[in-house]
């Protein structure tokens, strides 16, 4: 039974990857088409207003309907396909969990599987609140890469849950870390767009990325990114505390500067820096956006390099 469930999970996962790829293409076409659009007068006015504003989200609130109204056939198709891919992806994770008989995030493959699922879930979830079609390429692309690399390079067969992991804390500590990562990833995507948009705003004529005209102002993007990162930061703080409690249960000390603990701490400090930067004169805007990108880079480093090459107690990659 385990074997069948595990292979069914793989079928769902590969199907999800295929559908993500197609969704990615549609989002990309949408972005390309946006480049040929003329900015509407409404937008120009909003942009002008945005420049004068001091960090208010008011602009995003009002600019959002514009982006919404512009949702092209390609963007809508992209979303429909992303939802389909998400369903397949979810089925893959659930099947893997059933095959395991425990949560599907006990090794690197499973972590990739669920972190990419969380990323898509957050991306789709925030559409109910803000239309972020312009982020579709990034979100589906990131999910596809994480899921693909995880499945192709880190796949391991179903095994019994390692004894040290037999604890309710694996659900709490790792589950919340996964969610935090998803929010950080979406935040980083918005920060990247923010940097591009800020460069565009500085000199609109020099930019060859025409679609930048159609997305919200850099100030609005910064505010959106900030809100994603802030949610991620709270979750990350929780992960850190939960991890310390678990470490106390499992290893007898709540903090011991294990390599994974070190990197969890580094990431926490980087994002704390990001939040401070946003409140520091001279650091709002581009400098803080770079910190958000450094933050997600540290998360990726922690997950790949630290897991695979650093010696430590968190040796659960399964590889």
């Amino acid at each position: 039974m385990t074997e069948q469930l595990a292979s069914a999970a793989l079928v769902a996962i590969y199907s999800a990857m295929a559908v993500y790829s197609i969704a990615l293409v549609f989002f990309a076409i949408d972005i390309a088409k946006r480049s040929s659009l003329k900015a509407s007068p409404v937008q120009s006015e909003l942009l002008g207003q945005a420049d004068g504003f001091r960090g208010s989200i008011a602009v995003a609130k009002r600019a959002a309907p514009v982006a919404q109204a512009k949702a092209s056939r390609f963007e809508r198709t992209g979303f429909a396909l992303t939802i389909l891919a998400w369903l397949l992806h979810l089925a893959g994770a659930v099947l893997r969990g059933l095959a395991n008989g425990y949560v599907p995030w006990s090794n690197m493959f499973e972590f990739s599987l669920v972190v990419s699922l969380a990323l898509t879930t957050v991306f789709l979830g925030i559409q109910f609140w803000q239309k972020l079609g312009y982020l579709g390429v990034y979100a589906t692309g990131a999910s596809l890469i994480v899921l693909g690399v995880g499945t192709v390079n880190f796949y391991v067969d179903v095994t019994p849950l390692a004894v040290p992991l037999q604890s309710v804390w694996i659900i709490i500590h790792v589950g919340v870390a996964i969610l935090a990562t998803a929010f950080f990833a979406i935040g980083a995507g918005l920060s990247i767009l923010q940097l591009l948009k800020a460069r565009y705003e500085a000199n609109p004529d020099a930019s060859r990325l025409g679609f930048l005209r159609t997305i919200p102002s850099s100030v609005s993007l910064e505010s959106l990114a900030y809100r994603m990162v802030v949610v991620g930061f709270v979750l990350w703080t929780f992960t850190l505390i939960a991890g310390a409690i678990w470490a106390e249960r499992a290893w007898g000390r709540f903090w011991g500067w294990d390599t994974k603990e070190v990197w969890t701490f580094i990431i926490w400090v980087i994002y704390a820096g990001y939040i401070h930067a946003r409140a520091t004169r001279g650091w709002r805007g581009a400098p803080s956006a770079w910190l958000s990108i450094v933050g997600i880079a540290a998360v990726v480093f922690n997950y790949t390099i630290v897991n695979l090459f650093f010696k430590g107690l968190h040796a659960y990659s399964g590889l």
Binding site: I266, V269, I270, A272, G273, H276, A277, A279, T280, R281, G282, W283
Partner: peptide, 12 residues
């Protein structure tokens, strides 16, 4: 704020 930020980044 700037010093606090710098120290945070140094700590990381």
């Amino acid at each position: 704020m700037r010093t606090a930020l710098l120290l945070l980044l140094l700590l990381a």
